[in-house]
Amino acid sequence: MTDAELDILVKDKTDFNKRLRLIASLSHCEDERSVLALKHLAQHDFVYVVRLSAWQALQAKGIIIPEPVERPRYAILLERSLARAKRICQKMFDLCQGWYI
């Protein structure tokens, strides 16, 4: 497999099963480009199962990277911020309703 083909398969977002099969085949390779592809998948893929599978393949090779989280930190932070903004808006709305009565 050439570098261009590998790059296309790593960045293919149409079917996560393709990327899982790619991880299975890359886990048996010992070259540097397979490690780089696995690192990219473990850190940047949007499907948690793919990130976890790539992380496990890297762990089996003895390469230590942080374990992927099921939901990224920015999503948790965004949800908390939106919930806080919703509470503030609700309180402002309730306050304004008292003025119009």
Rank of each mutant, 00 (worst) to 15 (best):
D45N: 11
P66K: 02
K91V: 14
D45E: 08
F46R: 12
H44R: 12
K86Y: 12
I63S: 04
I76F: 09
W55T: 01
L41I: 07
P68G: 05
Q90I: 15
L82A: 08
D45M: 07
S81E: 13
Y74M: 10
L52N: 06
Y48C: 00
V69P: 02
P66A: 07
S81I: 05
D45T: 10
V69Q: 11
P66V: 00
K61R: 10
H40E: 15
H40G: 09
Q43A: 11
L41K: 05
G62M: 07
Q56D: 10
Q59R: 07
F93C: 14
F93N: 14
S53R: 02
A54W: 05
A85P: 00
M92E: 14
V47Q: 06
H40C: 13
L41D: 04
S81V: 07
G62F: 04
A60I: 06
V69T: 05
A75Q: 15
D45W: 07
Q43H: 08
W55H: 04
A85R: 14
S53Q: 04
I63W: 00
Q56G: 01
F93L: 15
S81M: 12
Q90C: 12
K91W: 15
W55L: 00
I64P: 00
K91Q: 15
A85N: 10
A83C: 01
P68Y: 03
M92G: 12
G62R: 09
V49M: 10
A54E: 09
R84P: 00
A83L: 11
I88S: 06
E67Q: 13
R71A: 07
C89T: 11
C89R: 14
E67C: 11
Q56K: 11
L78R: 05
R84E: 12
L58I: 03
I65L: 03
A42V: 08
R87A: 04
E70T: 01
K61L: 10
I88F: 08
